[in-house]
Design a protein around this nucleic acid. Structure first.
Length: 270
DNA sequence: AACGCGCCCTGTCCGC
DNA sequence: TGCGGACAGGGCGCGT
């Protein structure tokens, strides 16, 4: 479910509550959610640790402790929820007991999510293989243009490749391409420098606006307090097949690329 | 190395 | 009301 804006919103909700908290209990109810090692090692590695800080890298929630690093990828339907009343939601996967009676719950209907416990060194190595952060200073028109050089895949697919650019998923790829006026099927390597510039600004704008509105909720997404995001009605093409484009009035189309839906306007995006 | 495809899993919705 | 198929914010591992 979650792309960069949704994960960023979850992280901002978790950070104040988790920073400095002590992890007293860890209960794994669904062992298949634990990546890299077994659930016994996961529990042992976390119990007694203190959380130092919570941050985001790509679409991952990164919880640093005084030793290992907990990395949570939410997959399609994963949620990290703060709770103080001992509730047990359906599809609960992992329960983290914190000091002062608070809990952090991981629930995930489809269980595409993964929780990994890594040494700081392992995390460093993994992070090095991830793509550029779109909200960082290094994400410039020139850099985007350089990165796309030589790629023969469709731009929509290129934007979703986390090894190149990290954090853009199915919704914001369609949205950014529409804002830039570029057809999703165009080959990434065919981008001119000026068009790369337009695309870079479109990506940045749509991600920043979506963060500001706390992400997009289509169906499952909720932040750490259980609240939905507010960006859905700002989407210009995603989920709007057949509706008139706000720019030119042509009917928005839906196509399938790599088995995922892509939405675009045949008038604005040539 | 880069690319294309199938698969992981559960729930919901739509047409017949 | 029941049933099959399509589809859903992701990412890995396979073959070529």
């Amino acid at each position: 479910m979650p792309e960069l804006p949704e994960v960023e919103t979850v992280v901002r909700g978790l950070a104040p509550a988790l920073a400095g908290a002590r992890i007293e209990r860890v209960e794994v109810l669904r062992a298949d959610l634990i990546g890299k090692g077994d659930s016994a090692g996961f529990v042992q590695g976390l119990v007694g640790r203190r959380v130092e800080d919570v941050s985001r890298r790509a679409k991952n929630v990164v919880v640093r402790t005084d030793d290992p690093v907990l990395v949570v990828n939410l997959g399609m339907t994963g949620r990290l929820l703060l709770s103080a009343n001992g509730e047990t939601p359906s599809h609960l996967g992992v329960r983290f007991g914190l000091d002062r009676g608070r809990e952090l719950l991981y629930r995930d209907v489809r269980r595409f999510g993964v929780l990994s416990l890594l040494s700081p060194r392992e995390w460093r190595l993994r992070e090095q293989r991830m793509g550029l952060e779109p909200l960082s200073q290094e994400f410039t028109p020139r850099r985007l243009h350089q990165l796309t050089r030589g790629s023969r895949v469709a731009l929509k697919q290129w934007l979703m490749d986390q090894r190149k650019l990290a954090g853009v998923g199915n919704i914001y790829a369609s949205e950014a391409l529409h804002r830039a006026g570029i057809h999703p099927g165009r080959r990434a390597g065919s981008l001119s420098r000026p068009r790369a510039g337009r695309l870079q600004r479109a990506i940045l704008a749509v991600l920043e606006e979506a963060v500001e509105r706390r992400g997009t909720t289509l169906r499952d997404y909720r932040d750490a307090s259980g609240e939905p995001g507010q960006f859905r009605d700002r989407l210009r093409v995603y989920g709007r097949e057949g509706e008139p484009c706000g720019e030119c009035g042509r009917a928005i189309r839906r196509i399938v690329q790599q088995n995922r839906s892509t939405f675009y306007c045949p008038g604005c995006q040539r």
